[in-house]
Amino acid sequence: MTDDWKRRLERAHLEMVGRDDPVEWVKEASGVEASLRYPQLALRGPLFGVAVERGQGWEVVREIGAGMPQEARDSLNSLLWFRAKDDTDDPEVRRDLLAAVAILEKEPVNEVQAVGERYRIVRADEFARSGDDGLEPPRPTDPDPAEPSWDDRNGPPSPDLGFVLTPERTDGLTQEALKLGLRTFAYTGDRYPARVRNDSLRAVETHPDIALLPVTFGVAERNGAGWQPRGGLQPTPHEARRLLYSGMTDMWARIYKYPKDKAERYRLAGEEFRAAGRADEARVGGRLFRICRVERLVRFGPDGPETPRPSDVDEYGPIKMHPTMDLDGTVHHGG
Protein backbone atom coordinates (compact mmCIF):
# COMPACT_ATOMS: atom_id res chain seq x y z
CA MET A 1 0.00 0.00 0.00
CA THR A 2 1.42 3.39 -0.96
CA ASP A 3 1.91 6.15 1.57
CA ASP A 4 -0.73 8.16 -0.29
CA TRP A 5 -3.41 5.54 0.33
CA LYS A 6 -2.30 5.03 3.92
CA ARG A 7 -2.85 8.73 4.45
CA ARG A 8 -6.28 8.55 2.81
CA LEU A 9 -7.41 5.68 5.00
CA GLU A 10 -6.09 7.41 8.09
CA ARG A 11 -7.84 10.62 7.07
CA ALA A 12 -11.13 8.78 6.48
CA HIS A 13 -10.89 7.20 9.93
CA LEU A 14 -10.07 10.50 11.63
CA GLU A 15 -12.93 12.28 9.87
CA MET A 16 -15.42 9.63 10.99
CA VAL A 17 -14.14 9.80 14.56
CA GLY A 18 -14.23 13.59 14.46
CA ARG A 19 -17.81 13.74 13.18
CA ASP A 20 -18.97 11.04 15.61
CA ASP A 21 -22.13 10.69 13.52
CA PRO A 22 -24.13 7.56 14.48
CA VAL A 23 -25.66 7.42 10.98
CA GLU A 24 -22.20 7.34 9.39
CA TRP A 25 -21.10 4.54 11.72
CA VAL A 26 -24.21 2.53 10.82
CA LYS A 27 -23.45 3.02 7.11
CA GLU A 28 -19.88 1.92 7.74
CA ALA A 29 -21.03 -1.21 9.55
CA SER A 30 -23.46 -1.95 6.70
CA GLY A 31 -20.61 -1.60 4.20
CA VAL A 32 -18.39 -3.96 6.14
CA GLU A 33 -21.18 -6.54 6.38
CA ALA A 34 -21.83 -6.24 2.63
CA SER A 35 -18.16 -6.73 1.78
CA LEU A 36 -18.18 -9.97 3.78
CA ARG A 37 -21.50 -11.30 2.48
CA TYR A 38 -20.93 -10.16 -1.13
CA PRO A 39 -17.15 -10.32 -1.57
CA GLN A 40 -17.00 -10.59 -5.37
CA LEU A 41 -17.52 -7.90 -7.98
CA ALA A 42 -19.72 -8.63 -11.00
CA LEU A 43 -18.80 -6.38 -13.93
CA ARG A 44 -21.43 -5.28 -16.42
CA GLY A 45 -19.34 -2.99 -18.62
CA PRO A 46 -18.78 0.66 -19.51
CA LEU A 47 -21.17 3.59 -19.27
CA PHE A 48 -20.70 7.13 -20.55
CA GLY A 49 -21.79 10.63 -19.63
CA VAL A 50 -20.65 14.25 -19.63
CA ALA A 51 -18.73 16.31 -17.08
CA VAL A 52 -17.46 19.88 -17.12
CA GLU A 53 -14.33 21.11 -15.37
CA ARG A 54 -15.33 23.65 -12.73
CA GLY A 55 -13.58 24.89 -9.62
CA GLN A 56 -11.80 22.05 -7.87
CA GLY A 57 -13.31 19.15 -9.79
CA TRP A 58 -15.32 17.77 -12.67
CA GLU A 59 -19.08 18.31 -12.32
CA VAL A 60 -21.39 15.78 -13.96
CA VAL A 61 -23.86 17.58 -16.23
CA ARG A 62 -25.26 14.60 -18.12
CA GLU A 63 -26.01 11.33 -16.32
CA ILE A 64 -23.29 8.69 -16.68
CA GLY A 65 -25.62 5.99 -17.94
CA ALA A 66 -25.30 5.91 -21.73
CA GLY A 67 -24.31 2.60 -23.28
CA MET A 68 -22.17 4.12 -26.05
CA PRO A 69 -19.82 7.11 -26.23
CA GLN A 70 -21.81 8.64 -29.10
CA GLU A 71 -24.95 8.72 -26.96
CA ALA A 72 -23.07 10.88 -24.47
CA ARG A 73 -21.73 13.09 -27.28
CA ASP A 74 -25.29 13.55 -28.54
CA SER A 75 -26.46 14.54 -25.06
CA LEU A 76 -23.65 17.12 -24.89
CA ASN A 77 -24.66 18.37 -28.34
CA SER A 78 -28.21 18.97 -27.06
CA LEU A 79 -27.01 20.53 -23.80
CA LEU A 80 -24.93 23.15 -25.63
CA TRP A 81 -27.51 23.79 -28.36
CA PHE A 82 -30.26 24.51 -25.83
CA ARG A 83 -27.89 26.70 -23.82
CA ALA A 84 -27.39 28.71 -26.99
CA LYS A 85 -31.13 28.87 -27.61
CA ASP A 86 -32.48 29.54 -24.12
CA ASP A 87 -29.75 30.66 -21.75
CA THR A 88 -28.11 33.67 -23.38
CA ASP A 89 -28.86 36.84 -25.35
CA ASP A 90 -25.18 37.49 -26.06
CA PRO A 91 -24.31 36.74 -29.72
CA GLU A 92 -20.67 36.01 -28.87
CA VAL A 93 -21.62 33.50 -26.21
CA ARG A 94 -24.05 31.92 -28.64
CA ARG A 95 -21.35 31.81 -31.32
CA ASP A 96 -19.01 29.96 -28.96
CA LEU A 97 -21.66 27.43 -27.96
CA LEU A 98 -22.72 26.79 -31.56
CA ALA A 99 -19.09 26.35 -32.63
CA ALA A 100 -18.81 23.47 -30.16
CA VAL A 101 -22.11 22.06 -31.43
CA ALA A 102 -20.79 22.17 -35.00
CA ILE A 103 -17.78 20.09 -33.97
CA LEU A 104 -19.99 17.52 -32.23
CA GLU A 105 -22.17 17.26 -35.35
CA LYS A 106 -19.22 16.15 -37.47
CA GLU A 107 -16.53 14.57 -35.29
CA PRO A 108 -16.60 11.84 -32.58
CA VAL A 109 -14.62 14.01 -30.18
CA ASN A 110 -14.37 13.35 -26.47
CA GLU A 111 -13.79 16.95 -25.40
CA VAL A 112 -14.89 20.42 -26.47
CA GLN A 113 -14.47 23.91 -25.05
CA ALA A 114 -17.30 26.42 -24.89
CA VAL A 115 -17.54 29.77 -23.12
CA GLY A 116 -14.30 29.11 -21.26
CA GLU A 117 -15.38 25.70 -19.94
CA ARG A 118 -14.02 22.27 -20.81
CA TYR A 119 -16.64 19.56 -21.42
CA ARG A 120 -15.55 15.94 -21.49
CA ILE A 121 -17.14 12.58 -22.37
CA VAL A 122 -16.51 10.52 -19.26
CA ARG A 123 -16.20 6.73 -19.11
CA ALA A 124 -17.28 4.68 -16.09
CA ASP A 125 -17.34 0.97 -15.31
CA GLU A 126 -20.54 -0.45 -13.83
CA PHE A 127 -20.36 -3.26 -11.29
CA ALA A 128 -22.33 -4.93 -8.52
CA ARG A 129 -21.28 -6.96 -5.53
CA SER A 130 -22.14 -10.66 -5.54
CA GLY A 131 -22.04 -13.57 -3.12
CA ASP A 132 -23.33 -17.10 -2.73
CA ASP A 133 -26.96 -15.99 -3.12
CA GLY A 134 -26.34 -13.71 -6.11
CA LEU A 135 -26.24 -9.94 -6.54
CA GLU A 136 -26.34 -7.62 -3.55
CA PRO A 137 -29.81 -6.11 -2.92
CA PRO A 138 -30.27 -2.59 -1.49
CA ARG A 139 -28.85 -2.01 1.98
CA PRO A 140 -30.99 -0.80 4.89
CA THR A 141 -28.91 2.39 4.89
CA ASP A 142 -29.57 3.21 1.20
CA PRO A 143 -31.85 6.26 0.85
CA ASP A 144 -35.45 5.53 -0.05
CA PRO A 145 -38.57 7.72 0.13
CA ALA A 146 -40.46 7.52 3.44
CA GLU A 147 -43.78 7.42 1.56
CA PRO A 148 -43.05 5.88 -1.84
CA SER A 149 -45.46 6.38 -4.71
CA TRP A 150 -46.14 3.58 -7.15
CA ASP A 151 -48.01 5.79 -9.60
CA ASP A 152 -46.09 9.10 -9.83
CA ARG A 153 -44.16 9.08 -13.11
CA ASN A 154 -41.97 12.00 -11.98
CA GLY A 155 -39.45 10.27 -9.76
CA PRO A 156 -36.39 11.87 -8.20
CA PRO A 157 -33.65 13.17 -10.54
CA SER A 158 -30.47 11.26 -11.20
CA PRO A 159 -28.01 11.61 -8.32
CA ASP A 160 -25.30 12.12 -10.94
CA LEU A 161 -26.39 15.62 -11.93
CA GLY A 162 -24.27 18.19 -10.15
CA PHE A 163 -22.11 15.51 -8.55
CA VAL A 164 -18.44 16.50 -8.47
CA LEU A 165 -16.07 13.72 -9.48
CA THR A 166 -12.92 13.72 -7.40
CA PRO A 167 -10.75 10.83 -6.20
CA GLU A 168 -10.02 12.80 -3.03
CA ARG A 169 -13.64 12.62 -1.85
CA THR A 170 -13.74 10.75 1.49
CA ASP A 171 -16.83 8.60 2.02
CA GLY A 172 -15.73 6.36 4.87
CA LEU A 173 -13.22 3.60 5.41
CA THR A 174 -14.97 0.91 3.39
CA GLN A 175 -15.30 3.18 0.36
CA GLU A 176 -11.66 4.21 0.59
CA ALA A 177 -10.65 0.55 0.84
CA LEU A 178 -12.82 -0.25 -2.18
CA LYS A 179 -11.17 2.49 -4.22
CA LEU A 180 -7.77 1.16 -3.21
CA GLY A 181 -8.70 -2.34 -4.37
CA LEU A 182 -10.10 -1.03 -7.66
CA ARG A 183 -6.90 0.75 -8.65
CA THR A 184 -5.52 -2.44 -10.23
CA PHE A 185 -8.87 -3.68 -11.54
CA ALA A 186 -8.75 -4.66 -15.22
CA TYR A 187 -10.81 -6.80 -17.60
CA THR A 188 -9.57 -10.38 -17.76
CA GLY A 189 -10.77 -13.61 -19.32
CA ASP A 190 -11.57 -14.85 -22.80
CA ARG A 191 -15.05 -13.28 -22.77
CA TYR A 192 -13.29 -9.97 -23.52
CA PRO A 193 -11.47 -9.44 -26.84
CA ALA A 194 -7.72 -8.89 -26.61
CA ARG A 195 -8.01 -5.20 -27.53
CA VAL A 196 -10.49 -4.64 -24.69
CA ARG A 197 -8.17 -6.35 -22.19
CA ASN A 198 -5.18 -4.39 -23.48
CA ASP A 199 -7.00 -1.05 -23.20
CA SER A 200 -8.09 -1.98 -19.68
CA LEU A 201 -4.55 -2.81 -18.58
CA ARG A 202 -3.28 0.41 -20.14
CA ALA A 203 -5.90 2.43 -18.24
CA VAL A 204 -4.59 1.05 -14.93
CA GLU A 205 -1.31 2.77 -15.73
CA THR A 206 -2.58 5.97 -17.36
CA HIS A 207 -5.56 6.55 -15.01
CA PRO A 208 -4.59 4.91 -11.72
CA ASP A 209 -6.85 6.83 -9.36
CA ILE A 210 -10.50 6.06 -8.65
CA ALA A 211 -13.61 8.17 -8.11
CA LEU A 212 -16.92 6.55 -7.21
CA LEU A 213 -20.25 7.81 -8.51
CA PRO A 214 -23.41 7.81 -6.39
CA VAL A 215 -24.90 4.36 -5.91
CA THR A 216 -27.81 3.45 -8.19
CA PHE A 217 -30.24 0.55 -8.37
CA GLY A 218 -31.56 -1.76 -11.06
CA VAL A 219 -33.59 -4.85 -11.88
CA ALA A 220 -31.76 -8.08 -12.70
CA GLU A 221 -33.12 -11.47 -13.75
CA ARG A 222 -31.54 -14.77 -12.80
CA ASN A 223 -30.21 -16.33 -15.99
CA GLY A 224 -28.63 -19.72 -15.38
CA ALA A 225 -25.56 -19.11 -13.25
CA GLY A 226 -25.62 -15.35 -13.88
CA TRP A 227 -27.87 -12.30 -13.80
CA GLN A 228 -29.23 -10.28 -16.73
CA PRO A 229 -30.01 -6.56 -16.28
CA ARG A 230 -33.58 -5.55 -17.10
CA GLY A 231 -33.87 -1.83 -17.71
CA GLY A 232 -31.82 1.22 -16.83
CA LEU A 233 -30.32 2.43 -13.58
CA GLN A 234 -32.59 4.14 -11.05
CA PRO A 235 -31.79 6.70 -8.32
CA THR A 236 -33.44 4.81 -5.44
CA PRO A 237 -34.41 1.21 -4.61
CA HIS A 238 -38.07 2.18 -4.85
CA GLU A 239 -37.67 3.52 -8.39
CA ALA A 240 -36.17 0.16 -9.37
CA ARG A 241 -39.09 -1.61 -7.69
CA ARG A 242 -41.51 0.63 -9.58
CA LEU A 243 -39.72 -0.22 -12.83
CA LEU A 244 -40.16 -3.94 -12.12
CA TYR A 245 -43.79 -3.47 -11.09
CA SER A 246 -44.57 -1.55 -14.29
CA GLY A 247 -42.92 -4.24 -16.39
CA MET A 248 -44.79 -7.10 -14.77
CA THR A 249 -48.22 -5.47 -14.74
CA ASP A 250 -48.24 -3.66 -18.07
CA MET A 251 -45.17 -3.02 -20.21
CA TRP A 252 -43.86 -6.53 -20.83
CA ALA A 253 -47.24 -7.88 -21.91
CA ARG A 254 -47.54 -5.13 -24.52
CA ILE A 255 -43.93 -5.29 -25.72
CA TYR A 256 -43.68 -9.10 -25.94
CA LYS A 257 -47.32 -9.73 -26.93
CA TYR A 258 -48.14 -12.02 -24.01
CA PRO A 259 -51.32 -14.08 -24.39
CA LYS A 260 -54.08 -13.04 -21.99
CA ASP A 261 -53.51 -15.83 -19.47
CA LYS A 262 -49.78 -15.12 -19.24
CA ALA A 263 -50.35 -11.38 -19.00
CA GLU A 264 -52.75 -11.96 -16.12
CA ARG A 265 -50.24 -14.17 -14.26
CA TYR A 266 -47.62 -11.46 -14.54
CA ARG A 267 -50.09 -8.77 -13.50
CA LEU A 268 -51.08 -10.69 -10.36
CA ALA A 269 -47.44 -11.36 -9.50
CA GLY A 270 -46.71 -7.67 -9.95
CA GLU A 271 -49.55 -6.67 -7.64
CA GLU A 272 -48.30 -9.15 -5.05
CA PHE A 273 -44.82 -7.64 -5.34
CA ARG A 274 -46.25 -4.14 -4.83
CA ALA A 275 -48.31 -5.23 -1.83
CA ALA A 276 -45.17 -6.54 -0.15
CA GLY A 277 -43.89 -2.95 0.08
CA ARG A 278 -40.11 -2.96 0.12
CA ALA A 279 -39.58 -6.44 -1.33
CA ASP A 280 -36.39 -6.98 -3.31
CA GLU A 281 -37.40 -10.13 -5.21
CA ALA A 282 -40.29 -11.26 -7.37
CA ARG A 283 -41.02 -14.63 -8.96
CA VAL A 284 -43.35 -15.42 -11.83
CA GLY A 285 -43.49 -18.20 -14.43
CA GLY A 286 -40.28 -19.78 -13.19
CA ARG A 287 -38.40 -16.46 -13.44
CA LEU A 288 -36.64 -14.70 -10.57
CA PHE A 289 -36.13 -10.93 -10.52
CA ARG A 290 -34.09 -9.02 -7.96
CA ILE A 291 -33.64 -5.38 -7.09
CA CYS A 292 -29.87 -4.95 -6.98
CA ARG A 293 -27.41 -2.32 -5.87
CA VAL A 294 -25.19 -0.97 -8.66
CA GLU A 295 -21.92 0.93 -8.26
CA ARG A 296 -19.82 2.77 -10.83
CA LEU A 297 -16.18 3.79 -10.89
CA VAL A 298 -14.46 6.48 -12.95
CA ARG A 299 -10.73 6.27 -13.51
CA PHE A 300 -8.66 9.42 -13.10
CA GLY A 301 -5.30 10.42 -14.48
CA PRO A 302 -3.25 13.61 -14.16
CA ASP A 303 -5.58 15.44 -16.57
CA GLY A 304 -8.85 14.30 -15.03
CA PRO A 305 -11.43 11.56 -15.70
CA GLU A 306 -10.91 8.87 -18.32
CA THR A 307 -12.53 9.32 -21.72
CA PRO A 308 -13.79 6.48 -23.97
CA ARG A 309 -11.19 3.88 -24.92
CA PRO A 310 -10.35 2.91 -28.52
CA SER A 311 -12.06 -0.45 -27.95
CA ASP A 312 -15.35 1.10 -26.77
CA VAL A 313 -17.94 0.51 -29.49
CA ASP A 314 -20.24 3.02 -31.20
CA GLU A 315 -23.06 1.76 -33.40
CA TYR A 316 -23.42 5.09 -35.21
CA GLY A 317 -21.53 8.34 -35.67
CA PRO A 318 -22.13 12.06 -35.24
CA ILE A 319 -25.18 13.65 -36.86
CA LYS A 320 -26.85 17.06 -37.07
CA MET A 321 -29.41 16.80 -34.28
CA HIS A 322 -30.96 20.27 -34.17
CA PRO A 323 -32.01 22.98 -36.64
CA THR A 324 -29.65 25.73 -37.70
CA MET A 325 -29.57 28.72 -35.35
CA ASP A 326 -28.52 32.28 -36.14
CA LEU A 327 -26.40 34.33 -33.74
CA ASP A 328 -29.52 36.30 -32.76
CA GLY A 329 -31.18 33.07 -31.62
CA THR A 330 -33.46 32.59 -34.63
CA VAL A 331 -34.00 28.88 -35.31
CA HIS A 332 -34.49 27.77 -38.93
CA HIS A 333 -36.53 24.57 -38.83
CA GLY A 334 -36.03 23.96 -42.52
CA GLY A 335 -32.26 23.52 -42.27
Rank of each mutant, 00 (worst) to 15 (best):
T170Q: 10
G304K: 13
A146E: 15
E28S: 04
L182P: 06
E315R: 15
L297S: 00
D89E: 09
R267A: 06
G270Q: 08
D4Q: 10
D96N: 15
E111K: 09
G218L: 01
E28H: 10
A51H: 01
E59S: 06
V284R: 07
I319T: 08
L14A: 14
G162K: 12
P237N: 05
G286K: 14
V331A: 00
L180A: 04
R37S: 07
R296N: 04
R183G: 00
P138G: 10
R44H: 10
A194K: 15
A276T: 06
L288F: 01
W5T: 01
P145D: 08
E24Y: 01
D250M: 15
F82A: 01
P138M: 12
R8A: 03
S311V: 14
Y256K: 14
D142H: 11
V284C: 11
L135N: 11
D144R: 14
P308R: 11
A279N: 09
K6V: 00
D87G: 15
D152Q: 11
D160M: 07
R62H: 11
V17R: 13
K257Y: 06
P259A: 08
E221T: 11
N223P: 00
G181V: 05
E63C: 05
D20E: 07
A279D: 05
A203P: 13
S35G: 05
E24A: 15
R293E: 00
K6E: 01
P46Q: 02
A146P: 15
G162C: 10
E117F: 04
V196W: 06
A12R: 03
A99E: 12
A114F: 02
I103C: 00
V60F: 02
N198D: 12
A194G: 02
P140C: 10
L79K: 13
S35Q: 12
D190W: 09
G247E: 08
V17N: 04
L79C: 04
W227P: 01
S158C: 14
P143K: 06
Y38F: 15
D132F: 04
P138S: 12
W25I: 03
E176K: 09
L165W: 10
E107H: 12
L165C: 09
P156V: 15
D133G: 03
T166D: 15
L80W: 04
Q56D: 07
L80D: 05
Q70K: 02
T174S: 13
M248Y: 02
L98E: 07
L233E: 04
D261K: 11
Q40E: 12
R169H: 11
G31I: 05
A72H: 02
A177W: 03
G162Y: 03
L288S: 10
G67Q: 07
D132W: 03
T184N: 02
V50D: 04
W58F: 13
R267W: 03
L173K: 07
T170E: 10
R274V: 00
P318Y: 02
R183L: 00
P318H: 02
T141C: 07
R197Y: 11
L43K: 08
P138W: 11
R296T: 07
A253F: 03
E53N: 09
F300S: 05
G189Q: 07
L165P: 06
L135F: 06
G116P: 11
W58Q: 03
K179F: 01
H332S: 08
H13L: 15
A34K: 15
E10W: 11
R7V: 00
W81I: 10
A114G: 09
F82W: 13
F48C: 08
I121Q: 05
D3H: 00
Q234E: 12
L212K: 07
